[in-house]
């Protein structure tokens, strides 16, 4: 599990964008596209090199007050996102 005060940075090699035709957020990169599910899209929107993991969870809870177990979802997704290099942490 990551440290909750860590700050994820969005990898500028990717572009996050709402796609009407797909009805979801997508990540665009050279010659490719990844569709994000609803939760993943909301999390990635908050990855800006300023918000800590803690802060991202807090903001999401404000946005979705009924979000049960949102903490685990955020942590789980951020691990996957880091593996896929969509985001990175400063050493």
């Amino acid at each position: 599990m990551s440290n909750q005060t860590d700050i994820p940075h969005f990898n500028p090699m990717f572009r996050l964008q709402w796609e009407q035709a797909q009805d979801c957020y997508v990540l665009l990169f050279p010659e490719g596209m990844v569709k994000l599910n609803g939760a993943a899209g909301e999390i990635m929107k908050l990855v800006n090199g300023k918000n800590s993991i803690e802060k991202i969870t807090e903001l999401l809870l404000k946005q979705f007050p009924d979000g049960q177990g949102i903490n685990d979802d955020v942590n789980e997704f951020l691990i996957v996102a880091a593996e896929k290099k969509w985001l990175y942490y400063e050493q």
Binding site: E19, Q20, A21, V26
Partner: peptide, 8 residues
């Protein structure tokens, strides 16, 4: 307008 997203 149709939903094309990658343009080469």
């Amino acid at each position: 307008a149709m939903g094309a997203v990658q343009l080469g």
